[in-house]
Design a binder for these strands. Structure first.
Length: 269
DNA sequence: CTGGAATAC
DNA sequence: GTATTCCAG
């Protein structure tokens, strides 16, 4: 065996062992890895979790979130939307449940009843249609924020559909989304759930060889303007929210990508 | 797709 | 609270 062949065999063994190790991991152990932020894989966007300003990160199978007890909703929800996740299966909408994984107690859906606001999904049900459990998991009150119906079914819905389009086109993307929980906000319900004045969505594509990201910041009202008009730099969202995104990226790359508000790499159709 | 609400049990 | 049916952006 030549030296070169020997090293090739070693390389193959290493790759195989990594994959088999992961294969045999239970969900709990995977969650462990995620929370420690040590999971890195090739050809995937998984696990770009932002920092938490509230100190309460919760991991579900289909998404992770950072819960703000003060505002009774997540400051961010993060998940990977793989190409393979895209499905047209039509599940019946379940009832919203209180997220028991939120130790401080997530809000009850009653806060939203007759409030005039939608229970707006942060991780959309439409992104988790690959299994019944993944779909139902999005119906936790830690995954919703009060949204005007015209906003939710309008421009926000358009953005969510664009995300699915990009996930299909770019072979999966990683999504971070939430309301901007700052400043004066209206509240609804007995638990005073804050109504954000703006919502953001940040996408990173680490699959197509060249890492690219894009951020949207949209006022909480419907708009007929084109989506690209709401593109901002990731830095702007960081300044607004106090959340640090993509800190695991190499500093130069992080800095270069986060200061940019260019969207030329993203096909808007 | 995104959702609410009325009604009956 | 759950299930069904009907409704709107």
């Amino acid at each position: 065996m030549t030296k070169r062949t020997f090293y090739s065999v070693i390389a193959i063994l290493v790759v195989l062992s990594v994959y088999s190790y992961e294969y045999f991991l239970g969900e709990e152990e995977k969650t462990e890895l995620i929370s420690k932020g040590k999971e890195t894989k090739e050809n995937t966007n998984e696990y770009f979790l932002p920092t938490s300003t509230t100190g309460q990160i919760v991991h579900h199978n289909g998404y992770s979130l950072s819960y703000s007890e003060v505002h009774e909703q997540a400051e961010w929800v993060a998940y990977e939307l793989k190409k393979s996740h895209l499905s047209k299966t039509n599940f019946k909408r379940p009832y919203f449940e209180i997220d028991k994984a939120v130790k401080t107690g997530a809000a009850h859906w009653r806060n939203y009843k007759k409030s005039g606001y939608d229970r707006g999904h942060l991780c959309p049900a439409g992104d988790r249609r690959y299994s019944q459990s993944a779909h139902n998991e999005t119906f936790l009150t830690s995954n919703i924020s009060p949204q005007e119906h015209k906003f939710n079914s309008g421009i926000w819905n358009s953005l969510e559909q664009k995300v699915r389009y990009w996930a299909r086109k770019y072979n999966g993307i990683f999504v971070i989304t939430g309301g901007v929980l700052k400043g004066e906000m209206k509240t609804i319900g007995d638990e005073d759930v804050s109504v954000p004045n703006q919502f953001y969505k940040i996408l990173i594509d680490n699959n197509t060889g060249k890492t690219k990201m894009i951020a949207f910041l949209i006022p909480h009202k419907n708009s007929n303007e084109s989506l690209y008009k709401f593109v901002v730099s990731v830095d702007k969202v960081e300044i607004l929210t106090g959340i640090d995104f993509f800190s695991e990226l190499e500093d130069d790359l992080e800095n270069r990508l986060e200061t940019s508000s260019s969207f030329k790499e993203w096909d808007f159709d």
